[in-house]
């Protein structure tokens, strides 16, 4: 595989899951980038952490369940999911309430991930 030419692409998602297209758009970008076998960091900040909450049932609002797709990310070899620990805590959430295992990190770690990235997308 072309690992020597692979770039590190970081996606930062900061939006709630429903009511607009941003969260879905970010997920689609992650899935597309994964097809090209790039190194991917997927970071959830601010209201983006709500995307990961267990127990979503968006069929009640005629929307597709975004959180269901997160559990398929390992098949796309997207294994590095991060949440900003403070943003999680501010919203009364903890890692056990999330649909997938994530790295819960401080802002300093996110700053480092950005520094190690070739490209950063925020949505």
């Amino acid at each position: 595989m072309s690992t020597n030419t692979a770039k590190t692409i970081t996606f930062i998602t900061r939006s709630t899951p429903y009511g607009h297209g941003q969260a879905k758009a970010c997920l689609d970008m992650v899935l597309s980038a994964a097809v090209f076998e790039q190194k991917i960091n997927f970071i959830f900040m601010d209201d983006g952490v709500w995307q990961l909450k267990k127990g979503q049932a968006p069929s009640h609002i005629d929307a597709k369940d975004l959180s269901a797709a997160f559990t398929a990310l390992p098949l796309y070899e997207v294994n590095d999911l991060y949440v900003n620990a403070n943003d999680l805590q501010e919203r009364g959430l903890n890692c056990e309430e999330l649909v997938v295992p994530v790295h819960s990190v401080q802002a300093n770690t996110i700053a480092e991930l950005i520094r190690e990235s070739d490209v950063v997308f925020t949505l």
Partner: peptide, 20 residues
């Protein structure tokens, strides 16, 4: 897979899914 995850897998994940 679609029922669980709501996505149609692209080529590489499709191959991995069948392997799994």
């Amino acid at each position: 897979f679609y029922q669980t995850h709501g996505i149609s897998p692209a080529t590489r994940p499709f191959v991995k899914l069948v392997a799994r």
